[in-house]
Computed example of a mutant assay.
Amino acid sequence: MNGDPSSPDLHCHEDPNFLYEDDEEMAEVNVVVNQNEIELEEAHLHSLIDQEIAFGFRRVEDLVIDDWVQEARLQAITWVQTRTRALGFHPRTAYLAITYFDRFISLQAIPEKKRAAFVRVISVACLLLAAKMEEMNRPPLSQYTIQFQGGSIKKMELLVLVVLKWEMNLITPFAFLDNFIAKLCQESPPGLKSGIEQRLLSIMTEIHLMHHRPSAIAAAATLMAVDQNLAQEALEAKITSIPELYFLEIEAVYSYYTIMQVP
């Protein structure tokens, strides 16, 4: 066949100069694509900050949380984390559920005689709502709990939605992680992100999530993955060396960082 001039030549006879020019063009395309990706990431970060500020996350120094609320939160956190693991949900779903819980409990008065039962139903409802926001595959209600009838859970879901004014797309520290890891971590070994996510879950018991900026909490957890023994000056130096992180409140980041240092 190769010796027959009438047979079509199916081999690709490439001009080296053409390949070189094509490589140059592809390199230029890659530069443009990379630049666009960077700009999109920065735009996304600024959008998150705008949402965070607009929502009004703020630290309340003299906040006093009633003993019953603290106990209720611990019960809710324990139950939500247990069910989240059992159902194979992402850690951010648990964090969002407790964010709903904190906001609801701070806005809605609960009769003293009904607190114990209410807390359990609220926990289920908040996890259900968080799963609807975060999870692609959601199990039937029966896998969440067998303690309550489905009707009571659905009524509580609706109450939570009404009290929270249907504002369910709340910013959590998880939204910042990819950006912060890229900026603050020189290396990204296997398990880095999952370790940071577990630190975020651990801080839930220490703070009321609605009174603290998610960006500062995310930065603290990310820096803990970099170095677990940073002094405040060293932590500040790492943050200020990255101009794009100008919006972070250094004292707040360091406060959460020290909380995460406790075993």
Rank of each mutant, 00 (worst) to 15 (best):
V226F: 03
A76H: 04
G191V: 10
P140C: 13
L159W: 05
P173V: 05
F18I: 10
S202C: 14
Y144G: 01
L127S: 00
L40D: 15
P214F: 03
F118Y: 11
E24C: 08
H212L: 06
T145S: 10
I122M: 15
A225N: 06
M1Y: 13
P8I: 11
L19C: 05
E41W: 09
I110S: 00
V162P: 06
E52L: 01
D23V: 13
I77V: 06
L177V: 09
P173I: 14
P140S: 08
L128K: 05
E112M: 15
F174V: 01
L192Y: 02
H212K: 09
A86E: 07
D9P: 02
L159V: 08
S142R: 11
A225R: 05
I105F: 03
L201A: 13
V121P: 01
L74E: 08
P16I: 09
V32T: 14
T240D: 03
V226L: 12
Q232N: 06
A97T: 04
A225F: 10
S194T: 15
M204F: 02
E42I: 15
V64N: 11
A231T: 15
I65Q: 01
V69R: 03
P139K: 10
M260D: 00
E39Y: 10
W166H: 15
L10M: 06
V253L: 01
E233S: 13
N30V: 08
L10S: 13
M133N: 06
I181N: 02
N36D: 13
R83N: 07
A182M: 09
Y254F: 13
A219S: 11
A76P: 05
S188Q: 11
G195Q: 04
P8G: 03
R199N: 07
L19G: 14
S255F: 12
A109F: 15
I207N: 02
Y257L: 01
R58W: 15
A43L: 11
A72N: 04
N229G: 06
E236G: 07
A220I: 06
R92I: 07
Q143K: 09
A175S: 13
L184Q: 02
Q81I: 15
Y246I: 10
I250C: 02
T99S: 08
D15G: 04
I181P: 00
Q81D: 12
L245Q: 06
H212M: 02
D66W: 08
G195N: 09
I38V: 12
E112C: 06
